[in-house]
Every structure is written in structure tokens, then in C-alpha cells.
Design a protein around this nucleic acid. Sequence first.
DNA 1: CAGTTAACAGAACAGGTATTCTGTTAATTC
DNA 2: GAATTAACAGAATACCTGTTCTGTTAACTG
Lengths: 192, 192
Amino acid sequence: MARSREFDPNAVLDTAVELFWAKGYGQCGVADVVDASGVARYGIYQAFGDKDALYRAALQRYQRIVRDNFLAGLRSPDAGLAAIEAHFERMLGMLAEGDRRGCLACVAAVERAPLDSEVAAIVEDTLTLMRDAFSNAVDGALARSEIRAVERDWLIEYLVGLQRTLGTLVRSQTPAKEIEQCVRGALALLPA
Amino acid sequence: MARSREFDPNAVLDTAVELFWAKGYGQCGVADVVDASGVARYGIYQAFGDKDALYRAALQRYQRIVRDNFLAGLRSPDAGLAAIEAHFERMLGMLAEGDRRGCLACVAAVERAPLDSEVAAIVEDTLTLMRDAFSNAVDGALARSEIRAVERDWLIEYLVGLQRTLGTLVRSQTPAKEIEQCVRGALALLPA
DNA sequence: CAGTTAACAGAACAGGTATTCTGTTAATTC
DNA sequence: GAATTAACAGAATACCTGTTCTGTTAACTG
């Protein structure tokens, strides 16, 4: 019947994730995605709808990166304080290497969630992933008395908050040293 | 010689602070400030320059609110753990009342600092104010052994980070309960 | 192999917002 | 009190960026 698509939508989405992640929604135009992906402008509109829908699709795809790449250690059955520390150390390591992208979902929460409730819903989903991961590690740590016996739910939300802080702070021009101290302080208070 | 200005630049600035604070740089146009202040568009351009300069001037004026209104308790000579707790309780109180504006400087750090180094400098100034205030309270608390004996600078940066978290988290659609738990967790870990 | 149908490439369109221009008014100074 | 000069009010401009239109091409189906 008709001609078939020449590009892979998921590849475009990966490109979009990279760009939105690096530049943010406001600073990344559809034209940037068009240029970087090499796909025709109209093709993108055809496949994804408008810019907002493209952003949401990218945000959803980003969830996989969070789950598979960043939360794996925390989701392990034997995760505890060490896993929590390792997680944040890794984040600090990325910062030390000059990675200032932070977390796409955390940034979306501030930049887009107030203006797009569908974005808010996706962010909430991603946060649930994070919360479950930290929840697992906190339970392990509490069971082994590795961390202070504070209200479990508070601890979990506290760590999610720390993650969100880190995921957005990093994007401002705040000196790396300050961010590191902030995280080290947060971790230093944790042990029993 | 010539006609004199009919409006008070500082009053315009106060209006601009309110609007930028409530809506953010991106969602607040010069037209909003024009409408709310009743001052002529050209008058504002004449007095402040362009939108970016107006924003920076508002950001600088906002510093006074932070210093005089929000940090007074922490800057008191006898400030300690109680002052720290009272400070964050007050923030949570505002949240509970539906105030979702957060902190203009904290938001500016994420929204504008990466694109405007002058904004970054003003934000850094405001953060120094915060840091000094927390520094005072932490020293008081440490001297009286009210909080855990963790590296002083880490504690300070930790609290500045918590403040920044709160100041931006509040703007996303994150449920108030989660934010509250996050802060309560952070405070619960503090006492010796 | 031919027809149909949708993707392609690029230009054109549209809407919103920052910015500036024009005539007019009124305060200040001599 | 008159001249001057800058602020006022509103419209007009410019620009950026998201969105859509046009002709063209090529893949699938019968």
C-alpha cells in the first residue's frame, strides 16, 4: 500500500532523551531533535504528536535508564547501608567527572510537572520506582541495625528527597564541593 | 528641565518579586509586571533594562526577604537545634497552608543560573546568607551537644541542601505529605 | 508491474512575547 | 511663565520556535 517509515521511533526517543536530559525542556527545541536525529520534522510530529508529547515519551523512556542503570544496586535483595552509600558515591563520581545533567525526572518535576499534569503523573511513576528501591535498602539496613532506628517511611522519603536534591542541584552552577559536602553530611547522619 | 518619574522603582520591584516568585521566570512575562504594577511598558524598560535585568533586580531585592524574614531565627546568637527545627517547621507550615511558591533563589538556581551567570552570582550571594545563618545555628547546637558530632561543614551544607530541596520540591506537584516526611526524616537524624 | 498511500524534504505559517517606536503630556528650570 | 526634556500610553515591530502545508518520492499490495 504505502511507503513505510525510514526511521526507528525508539532511536529518535533515545536522541530526545539525551537532548532533553542535557538541555532541559525549555532549552531544547524540536529543531534540536530534528537535527540530532536526522529525521524529518514532520515525521516526528507524525510519530509523536507535538513537542509536549515527545517530551513525555522521552520521559517515559528515561524511566528504563533509572530502573536498569541507577537503581539496580538498591533493588538487590541484600541491599543495605552499603548499597545506599555506594549509590550516592556513584552520583558524586559522575559529578566529579563533570556530568552536570542531573536527573531528567527530577528536573521535569520542577520544570514541567506544574504545567503538564501528564508529566506530573510520569514523574510520580518514576519516583515510585525510586521509593521502592530505597525502601528495599532501608528495610535491609534497619533489619541489620546498620542505620538509626528512625520512622521507616521518613527515612525512605528522606533518601528520595536527597536523590531529588542531587538530581537538580547539580544543574545549577553550585560548586561541586558544596554538593559533595551536602551529600556526605546526609550520609554521615545515617549510621546507627 | 524634564518630567520626573511617576512610579516608584522599588514598588515595581516588589511586584516583580511577587510575580517571578509565584510563576517563575519562564511563566512570567514583562506584560504581567506591566499589568500588575500599572506602570508603562517603556517605563520599565527605561528603568531596569530588559527582562533579564529586571529579573536579576527582583532576585536581589528578594534577598532582603530571605535575610529579614526567613533567616532571623537562625541568625540569633543563641540559635541551636530548636531554631533549626523551628525554621523548617515554619516552612512546612507554609506548605500546609497551600503556599507552593517555594524559594525564588532556589528556583532561580535551577531555572536561570545555568543560562545567566549574573543570576548565578546573585544566587551564590543568597546561599551565602543561608549558609551563614545555618552555620551560626549549627555551631550553637554543636557547642551544646544538641546534634550529632559530625563534620561541621558537612552539617551546614546538609542543611543548606535541605533548604534548597524544600524550596524547589514544593513547586512540583509532589504531595505535601511526602515533602513533610522527607523533612521530618532529615530533622529526626540530627539530634545526638 | 501498476496504483495507491503514506513518508519524506523543505518551505511557509502562526502565535506569543520581548523590544522599540510615535506622538503626547507634564514636570522642572531659567 | 515659557521652553525644554524626559516620562507616559499605546501601537507597531521583530524574532524565535512550534506547527502545518506542498510537491515529491518510494514502498507495499493486488
